[in-house]
Amino acid sequence: MTKDLRFASSLIVTGSVILAVVVLAALLAPLLTGWGPEEIDPAAPLAAPGGAHLLGTDLNGMDVWSRVLYAARLDLGVAVVAVALAVVAGSLLGLVAGYWGGWADDVLMRVVDVFQAFPTFILALAVAALFGGGTLNLVAVIALVNAPAYARLVRAEVRSIRELPYIEAARTSGAPPWGILWRHVLPNSLTPVRVIAPLNCGWAMLTLAGLSFLGLGVPVPGAEWGAMISLGTADVVAGRWWTSVPPGLFLLVCVLGFSLLGEGLQERADAVRR
């Protein structure tokens, strides 16, 4: 059991350190590179790493290292904001539906059913294709496709909490329904959300990059990891690794940071419960 906790802590610490480093690199990007993210070096399209360009340049002659760093701002920002929106909206809906039940619950759950009749990525793809790309649209799309899962999660939690003795105790104490909801149900129903949300940030980043990879995300000159990977597809077949391997690696490490954090939180919650 000691071991479990120690492993959980090391996961949480590693994940947090990874994320902190990525955030720092994104914020300090201007200090870490001399090139702007959309600055074109007309002399050197597809330049190999080394020399003036640490990680070489892409097809358009833009500096890969610089773009990778600046892209972190966009990818992280969109993912975190979108997930935050999904958590707030989904949890509130789930809370209300789960606690009061009745027709509101029925309607909400049918809507969630329809949403969940599709794989998340397919749904994001369809909505993004129909609404068009752009950063704000992407935030909305990713929030929209993730919110139903939170609604369902919180609703299930609320429904089981509603039956627990301490809620009955609050009722016998004469607490009004809103008081019970706010003081007892809400804080306890968010426990699983705390674990899922970091994992979800990782998935959101993958979704965003996937959309951009297919050309449905951030418009062309914008620095975004998925779009960069997409641009380098042809280079890979030609054996030029530097245009698409580095952005993917950054994406992987960043998502891994969230995964480690989420897994660690989960593990700790399990160890404490035991």
Binding site: F213, G226, I229, S230, T233, V236, V237, V245, V255, L260
Partner: peptide, 23 residues
């Protein structure tokens, strides 16, 4: 498993192509 969970599949595909075909 955590790394697998964090891999962008399109990038992984490209890396495998790079290794398996190009290299």
């Amino acid at each position: 498993a955590l790394v697998g969970n964090s891999l962008p599949e399109f990038w992984l595909g490209l890396v495998l192509v790079l290794l398996g075909y190009s290299v």
